[in-house]
Every structure is written in C-alpha cells, then in structure tokens.
C-alpha cells in the first residue's frame, strides 16, 4: 500500500507537467477546432461553427493533396530506413576493420538538428552551386533542379530523411539483435534451415516488437516532418513536397487561420493513432494473443 502511494508521489511531478503541457493544450486545440478564428479577420474573436471545419476538410483539395504526398513520403522513407537500418545493424553485428569509427560516423546525423539538416542539404542541392547537382551533371549528364522538378525535390527529401534517421533504426535493431538468444539459430542451422528461412521464421518474429516500436517512432516523426522540408523546398515546387506538417504550419502561422489549422491538426493526430493502431493489431496483437 505504502509503495503504491510512494509510486504516485514519484509520478506526480511528471503527471502534473504532462497535464499542463500536454493534455491541456490538446484539449484547447480540440476546442479551437470547432471555431472559426482568425485574429486578422474583421471579427477577430473566436466564433463557434460546429463541425463546419471538419466538413470543410473533406473537400479541401490542398489538404487532401498534402495528405497524399505525406503518405507517399512516409512509405518511402520509413520502409527505406527500416531495410537499410536492418542491413547496417547486421553489418555492425560482425567485426570488420574500422568498425568503431564507421559506427560513430554513421550515428552522427542523429545529433544534427533538423533545421540544420535542411540547410546543409539545401546548400548541397541548390542548382549550379550545390555539390550534388554539380557531380550528377559532370559524371552522368543529369540535370538536377529541385526548384523545378517535383520528382527531384521529393526524392531529395526522402534521401535526406533516410540519411538523417537510418542510424536511429540501426541502433534500435542492433539492441534487438544483440538480445536474441543463440539457441534457436543454432537449432535451425542443425535442422538445415537456409538464411532466408532463418530470417523469416526466427529473426523477424523475434525482433518484431523492436521493429514495430521503431516504425511507430519513425511513422509519427515522419508524419509531422516540417523543419527539413521547410528549409529545403518550402513545400515546393508547387505543392509537391507540401507535407501535412508544412500545410498546417502555413495555415496556422502565416495565414493565422487558427480554427481550421487546429482542425487539421486534430484530424492528422487521429489518422496517426489509427495507423499506429492498425500496425499494432496486424503485427503484434496476434502474437500477444498466442503468448
């Protein structure tokens, strides 16, 4: 009984902070999402407009477009990070010369702030000045211009995100791989299982919780990507890289459309929860049930 009370006492500061800086603002955003509110309108006050904002979202082509682009980005980026991260994790499980140095260098992007990542990639990709278009042109005769080519801009953002976040995936998967017991693998080898069979039937199921946790983290991060994209393309060319995060930013800050911007935020949060729940249900729930 006493230890339970002590537990609550220790938890209290965190819960209080979480309530004031997490729960309350969220409730406020939900409240605002049911209002029309632009402080630079003729009437700068909040006006309750029921579910109008939610109805508007369904027909908002700009939002739907940004959602589509975001989903594409999430699929390409997270999948690439997962595959690349797994192979790198496997590589780091083995010994090779210079492993420590390579592992350190490989982890460095993680400590760089997203806005700086965006700036650096902007420098590297600016047509005529950047090192990437320069060498693409010199070596392969490819003209790369992220200001005019939607594909180039989108691909650059995916590559930038993969460069930035693959180390996180690698580190998580290394932790998972290191903790695996050797027995099932030895058993499988004795039974004559191939590498592919071992991967699908032993390694993957055993590291699935770590994979799902990593995908959760990356999924949520990728869905709210703003800084790097803001710096690199500003959402362009056109709306080719106007991800939902950027769309919300533009709606809320420069346009000061607080009501509708809040609605989009709530919807995006809802969609994120749904996607994560689906992922959980399909990958982990059956396994938990079985256990």
């Amino acid at each position: 009984m006493q230890s339970k009370r002590l537990g609550w006492i220790f938890l209290a500061p965190t819960l209080v902070i979480l309530f004031f800086f997490g729960v309350l603002p969220f409730i406020y955003v939900v409240y605002v999402s049911f209002h029309q509110w632009n402080p630079f309108a003729v009437n700068p006050e909040m006006v309750f407009n029921g579910a109008d904002n939610f109805r508007q979202i369904v027909f908002d082509q700009a939002f739907l477009n940004s959602l589509g682009v975001t989903v594409l980005f999430v699929v390409f980026a997270v999948l690439s990070e997962l595959i690349l991260g797994y192979f790198l994790a496997q590589a780091f499980m083995r010994d090779f010369p210079g492993k420590a140095i390579f592992r350190t260098i490989h982890t460095l992007p993680l400590i760089v702030a997203p806005i700086i990542v965006g700036s650096v990639w902007k420098l590297m990709t600016t047509p005529s000045i950047g090192i990437i278009p320069h060498y693409l042109d010199e070596w392969f005769g490819i003209t790369m211009n992220i200001g005019t080519s939607a594909t180039a801009a989108f691909a650059t953002i995916v590559i930038m995100d993969v460069w930035h976040w693959t180390p996180l995936v690698t580190l998580t998967l290394i932790a998972a791989l290191v903790s695996l017991p050797p027995d099932p693998f030895e058993q499988a080898q004795i039974d004559g299982a191939g590498k592919r069979q071992i991967f699908w039937h032993i390694t993957l199921p055993m590291i699935a919780p770590a994979v799902v946790a990593t995908v959760f983290i990356r999924l949520m991060d990728a869905l709210r990507t703003v800084d790097e994209v803001w710096m690199l393309t500003g959402g362009g060319p056109g709306s080719a890289t106007r991800f939902v995060g950027v769309h919300i930013f533009k709606e809320v800050f420069p346009k000061t459309n607080y009501g509708y911007g809040s609605t989009i935020s709530v919807i995006v949060l809802y969609l994120t929860i749904v996607v994560c729940w689906l992922l959980y249900v399909t990958m982990l729930a059956p396994r938990n049930k079985k256990d």
Binding site: T126, P127, S128, I129, N145, I146, G147, T148
Partner: peptide, 8 residues
Amino acid sequence: APPESPAS
C-alpha cells in the same frame, strides 16, 4: 536566368 532561380 541562372539555373538556381527557381530555388531563389
């Protein structure tokens, strides 16, 4: 204009 213009 210079090629960097669409990103300027």
